[in-house]
Each structure stands twice: as structure tokens, then as C-alpha cells.
């Protein structure tokens, strides 16, 4: 399931709902992305996330499909927020459920790695020097590439 929203989410409620009623699930894995208070050397007081409505949901849906194709998963959840967020706020939740831990853990990492390079979101940070757009990181591109060949 994919959700793109301005509002915060309750991690406990979301994870409980993901596994509710399905007793085949033996492992639930999750990743939560938070707003940091530093961007490089600069203190960050807030950031604003912009996205491309329509394409965002489409790309996240494709990632969900690809995760199901690669691993035996019972459930996938991706929630990504947009709008203005402050340090400590939740940005993203990726959760995967499977009978065994290996698939749940691997699929969760796969999804956040792909999301970083393929989901059309952009961050702008508020710093003492003014507002600035976050630049993409080569490490994220490398993290995504290693999933190309492995199952």
C-alpha cells in the first residue's frame, strides 16, 4: 500500500495494521526516515518536501510491485510525507512483512534505497544562511545500483 500525505503517521498503529489477521507473517521489518537538524555543516531549522503528484504514486507503486516480484512478501507499506517538517519529524515509513525475516529485511532496504533515487521528491532546507535545495548524493545512487543484479 502506498500513501503520500502531509499528515504525520503513528508507526505502532501502521505496523499493527499491516500484520493484522495474517498469521503467515513471521517477520515485520520497518525503516523510518527522520528530519535531521544538520545538513552538512549548516544547522537546519526546517525542511520543505515538494513532490510530483501522480508520478510519485506511480513510481512508489512500481517499487512495491518490484519488491513483491523479488521476495515472498505478504504486505508492503510505504508512507511518504510532503510539506514543511521540523527536526525530529517523521518523513517516511517503509514496512515489509513476510513469513521469514530474510525477505522482510532485504525488501525493506531495497525499497528505501530505490525510493531515495527514483521517487520524485525534493527537499529544501531552512538554514541560518537562508533556504537552499538539498543536492542528491552519489552514495544513494551507489546504494540503488547494487540491487540491480541481486535478487
Amino acid at each position: 500500500m502506498i500513501r503520500v500525505q502531509r499528515e504525520d503517521f503513528d508507526v505502532g498503529v501502521e505496523l499493527e495494521r499491516l500484520a493484522a489477521g495474517n498469521h503467515r507473517i513471521g517477520g515485520l521489518s520497518s525503516f523510518i526516515g527522520l528530519v535531521r537538524d544538520m545538513g552538512g555543516e549548516e544547522r537546519v531549522s526546517a525542511l520543505t518536501l515538494e513532490h510530483y503528484p501522480g508520478m510519485t504514486e506511480k513510481k512508489l507503486g512500481e517499487m512495491e510491485t518490484e519488491a513483491h516480484r523479488r521476495w515472498p512478501l505478504d504486505a508492503v507499506l510505504i508512507i511518504h510525507r510532503y510539506g514543511r517538517l521540523e527536526p525530529g519529524d517523521r518523513i517516511v515509513l517503509v514496512a515489509t512483512a513476510s513469513p521469514h525475516r530474510e525477505a522482510a529485511l532485504a525488501a525493506c532496504q531495497f525499497l528505501i534505497d530505490w525510493l531515495k533515487t527514483d521517487a520524485p521528491f525534493w527537499k529544501s532546507e531552512e538554514t541560518p544562511a537562508g533556504e537552499r535545495w538539498v543536492e542528491s548524493r552519489a552514495e544513494d545512487e551507489a546504494a540503488r545500483r547494487r540491487w540491480k543484479l541481486c535478487p
Binding site: H51, I91, T117, A119, F121, K123, S136
Partner: peptide
Amino acid sequence: VAIFPPVTGG
């Protein structure tokens, strides 16, 4: 057609 910089979500 959408034109944008490299993405920085997550």
C-alpha cells in the same frame, strides 16, 4: 513533460 533536478526524497 516534467523537468526537474535529481530527486532528494526519503
